[in-house]
Amino acid sequence: MSAQLNHTIVWCRDKQTSANYLTDILGLPGPEPFGPMLVVKLDNGVSLDFYNNDPPIASQHYAFLLGDDEFDAAFARLQARKQPWWADPGKQRLDEINDYGGGRRVYFDDPDGHLLEIFTRE
C-alpha cells in the first residue's frame, strides 16, 4: 500500500463550534464523536478530528478541492455569514476570487484562526 493521509487533528478551543462551522460551510454531514474528538469525514476517506486545546491555537491551513456546484454553494454560505474572504493566503486581496489555473479559490478563517481554502482546480 502506498502512503495515504488518513486523518489529522485540528486543535480548537471548542470542538463543537469548529467542527460544525466546517460541516456547515462545506455542506457535509455533521461531525461524529470518537473518544474526546469530533470527526468530520471527507469524501476521499480523510477525516479532520477536532480536539479541544487551550489557547493559544497555532494557525494551520486546510484546503478543500470542490466541484463547481459545491464551490458555489460553499461560497454562498460563506457570503451569507458576512465573513471576510481573500484571493490569496497572505490576505492581501480582500473580497476577490483567485482564478489561478482556470479555476476558482478563496481563503477564509475558521473560528480558531485556521486558514481554510476552497478551490475548484488543482
Rank of each mutant, 00 (worst) to 15 (best):
N6F: 01
T8G: 12
T8N: 07
T8C: 13
T8S: 14
I9R: 04
V10L: 15
C12R: 12
R13I: 11
D14S: 06
D14V: 00
T17Q: 14
T17K: 08
A19Y: 04
A19E: 05
T23I: 02
D24C: 01
I25L: 15
G27N: 01
G27Q: 12
L28I: 03
G30W: 14
E32V: 15
G35M: 02
G35W: 02
P36R: 08
M37A: 13
L38S: 05
V39E: 11
D43P: 10
D43C: 11
N44C: 12
G45R: 11
S47I: 00
L48N: 07
L48Y: 06
N52C: 08
N53T: 04
N53D: 01
P56T: 04
P56A: 08
H61I: 03
H61L: 10
A63F: 13
L66M: 15
G67S: 15
G67T: 15
G67H: 12
G67Y: 02
D69G: 08
D69E: 09
E70Y: 07
F71A: 08
D72H: 13
A73H: 10
A74V: 07
F75S: 12
F75G: 02
R77L: 02
L78S: 09
R81N: 12
K82F: 03
K82P: 00
Q83G: 00
P84Y: 05
P84Q: 03
W85M: 07
W85Q: 01
W86E: 01
A87L: 09
A87H: 03
P89T: 02
G90L: 14
G90V: 09
K91H: 13
R93V: 01
D95G: 00
E96H: 14
I97Y: 00
N98G: 07
G101K: 11
G101M: 14
G102S: 11
G103V: 03
R104Y: 06
V106T: 10
F108Q: 10
F108R: 00
F108C: 06
F108S: 03
D110G: 05
D110K: 00
P111L: 12
D112G: 02
L115I: 09
L116P: 02
E117A: 03
E117Y: 02
E117H: 04
F119S: 02
T120H: 05
R121E: 07
R121L: 14
E122A: 14
